[in-house]
Amino acid sequence: MRPPPKSWPPTKGSEPLPNAPRIAPPVSAARPAGKLRGARALSGPLPWLLPALIMLGLFYLYPIAEALRLAFTDARLFDQATEPSLDSIRRVSQSAALPVILQNTLVYTVASVLGQLGLGMAIAILVVRAERARLRGTMALRTLVLAAWVIPAIANGVIWQLLFSEAPFGAINSALRMVGFAPVAWLSDPSNAMLSAVIATIWQGTAYSMILLYAALKSIDPALNEAAAIDNATGFERFWFITLPHLRAALLVNAILILIMTLNMFDTILSLTGGGPGRATEVLSLFAYNTVFQSFELGRGAVLSILLLIISLTLTAAMVVFLPRERK
C-alpha cells in the first residue's frame, strides 16, 4: 500500500507551520514511476561523473586501446594499413636489445625512486625542523628545491650535460681537479653514464617527493614527539617509532607516483646521453620513443608502450597492497 502523500508545506504535527506559504507540492511528487526513475538517475552521481568519464575515455582509454590495437599489427609510421599480426610482439620478444633495456630500466628506476624518496624525506625533515626552530631561510630552501622541479626535463638533461662535460673545461671535473681529484668519465663510461642519468633525475624529482612528505610531516601531531622526548627517546627512535609509521601512507603514495613518473621519463636521458654510449642508458620509455621516431616502427613501439604500461600497473598494484586500510 502506498503511503499517503506527505503534506506540503511542512507541518508541525498535523498543523501547518505558522506563516508557511500555501504553495503547490513539488512536481516530482506527481510524476509517474518511469519519469521518477529518470529523475533519480539524473540526481545521482552519474551526471557529475560523466564529464570526467568522457574526458578519461577520450584522452586516456582511447589511446591505450589504439596502442593495444597497433601492438597486434606490424604497422610502420608511414604504412599503417596492415593486417592483424603477432609480428611486432615476436620481434620485441626476440630482440637482443630487450634484456639490456629491461636491465637498464630496473637499475635506473630503482636507484632514481630510492634517491628521490630518501633525499625528499631528508629535505622535508630538515625544512620542518628548521621551521620549528624558527630558523631563517626555510622559505628560500623550499623555493630553491622547487626551482629544480619547474625546469623542463629536456632542459634538465642539457644542464647536467654541461655539468658532466668531460671536456677540459667541464664544470664538475674542473672542480674535482681543483681539489686534487682525478676527472671522472661521467658520460663516456657506460656504468658512470647510468649513474649520471640517475643523479640528474634525482635532482629534478626530489622536489616533488619533498612537497608530499613535507605535507605529511606537518600533519603529525607535535604532541607525540614531545611526549617521546619527555620519555627520553632518542632522535632516531622518535623517527623510527613515530615519524616513519605516520608517513607510511604518504611514502607509499609518493613511491607509486615517483615510480610511474620515472618509468615514463625519457626526455632527461634523451638530452643527457641520448641513451648511449651504445645502449648503456637506454631505458624502456626511450627505447619506445626511438623505435617510433627513429625507426618508424609503430607496431613495435606500441608493444613496448604496452609493456611499459603493464610494468607500471603491476608495480603499482603490488605497492597498493601495502597501503594502510581505513579501520571500519
Partner: peptide, 22 residues
C-alpha cells in the same frame, strides 16, 4: 682521441673545444 667522443653528439661541442683551444 679522448674516450669522451662517445658522449659527443653535437657539432657545438666540437666548436666549443676549438674555441677553448683544447
Amino acid at each position: 682521441a679522448p674516450r669522451r667522443v662517445t658522449a659527443l653528439s653535437s657539432y657545438d661541442d666540437l666548436l666549443a673545444s676549438a674555441v677553448a683551444g683544447s
